[in-house]
């Protein structure tokens, strides 16, 4: 019997035992790396310790954004061309539910209480507010053209959505579902991430090739972080995924076809280093202890593993055709 199944049964006797059971039963490195393969229409599940493939799970067409449920038991998947969200049960590693979204869902974010998904629907200029338990859309929020990046503040009160064509970060009040501020950023914003303290929002711009660090209260840009890599042309540098460390010290930015991840000092907002990873690096996810960072590389069809202490790339592992999103289940 798989450990997780065993622990689930133990948890039937006493709910708090689930985490304790897992902690005792699984080795320290037991995380599972989950990768959406955009072209294969699969989720690759890898063992975080051995980096070996556990299972390749077929899902709906063109899986891109993925996010882990708060209890770590499920993975939500934007299956963009299937025009819905799928739920992958991480115990059985099968898709157990399908949830509605608008057309062409690409990225989404989970409310801090884990109950709602805010989904960017690229093709209808709306953000859908999805009640996961009920499996229904509560509301549609009109935003700019081609919504994409989605971030929610740690207190859950503010949602930030970026629109690719309007080049804006829209700040949305989650209580009223109204846009309360728009911040103009550079061309084709792709990703938004709040800092842990909720004071900043980092927004990457793919064509602009930079990251805007936005004051979340004042709705003003504190700094635009630009990237320059010797021997790499500027149009190759396309900022996409962002990962911010919990300790507030480092930020990592995926630079697309530049095949680099930029490491940024969060105090000075200066680039410390560029790490050569696989080709067309899309998105990033930390291991639970944040000692490793995993990157999806859409052209070389692999993930790279970055040691976040040494700031070195330690390994690359093939995962499938056109890996896009990544999440790590503890």
């Amino acid at each position: 019997m798989p450990v997780r199944t065993l622990c689930s049964r133990v948890a039937l006797l006493a709910a708090p035992l689930y985490a304790a059971c897992l902690a005792l039963a699984l080795p320290a490195h037991a995380e599972r790396i989950l990768v959406s393969n955009e072209k294969d229409n699969t989720i690759a599940v890898l063992d975080g310790k051995t980096l070996s493939m556990i299972k390749i799970v077929p899902v709906g067409a063109r899986p891109r954004g993925i996010v882990l449920s708060k209890d770590g038991k499920a993975l939500y998947i934007c299956t963009s061309d299937a025009d819905h969200i799928e739920v992958l049960d991480l115990d059985s590693l099968t898709v157990t539910r399908t949830l509605p979204s608008g057309p062409d869902p690409e990225l989404f974010t989970l409310s801090p209480d884990g109950k709602l998904l805010y989904v960017a629907n690229e093709n209808d200029n709306m953000v859908s507010v999805l009640d996961i338990a009920e499996g229904r859309i509560l509301s549609e929020i009109p935003v700019g053209l081609e919504p994409e990046g989605m971030g929610v503040s740690p207190d859950g009160k503010i949602l930030v959505n970026t629109s690719e064509t309007t080049n804006m970060a829209h700040f949305i009040d989650t209580a009223t579902h109204k846009v309360i501020a728009n911040v103009l950023v550079d061309s084709r914003p792709r990703f938004a991430e709040f800092t842990n303290d909720g004071k900043q929002v980092w927004v990457s711009s793919e064509i602009g090739g930079n990251v805007a660090v936005i004051d979340a209260a004042a709705h003003t840009i504190i700094k635009k972080i630009h990237f320059a890599i010797p021997g790499v042309t500027t149009e190759t540098i396309q900022a996409v995924g962002i990962a911010l460390s919990r300790d507030g010290k480092l930020a990592f930015v995926a630079l697309g076809p530049a095949n680099r991840v930029a490491v940024i000092d969060r105090q000075t907002l200066e680039v410390k280093k560029y790490l050569l990873v696989g080709q067309r690096v899309w998105h990033l996810a930390f291991s639970p202890d944040e000692q490793r960072l995993y990157t999806t590389n859409g052209v070389s069809n692999d993930i790279s593993v970055i040691d976040t202490a040494d700031l070195k790339v330690t390994k690359s592992v093939p995962v499938g055709a056109e890996p896009w999103g990544v999440a790590v289940a503890p």
Binding site: S187, I207, I229, V232, E235, T236, P257
Partner: peptide, 20 residues
């Protein structure tokens, strides 16, 4: 945004550079 004749989704990178 840039080259109106470029039809593909990804931004056109006109030339692959060694540093990449």
């Amino acid at each position: 945004i840039e080259d109106p004749d470029w039809p593909c989704q990804q931004r056109l990178v006109p030339e692959l550079s060694a540093g990449t």
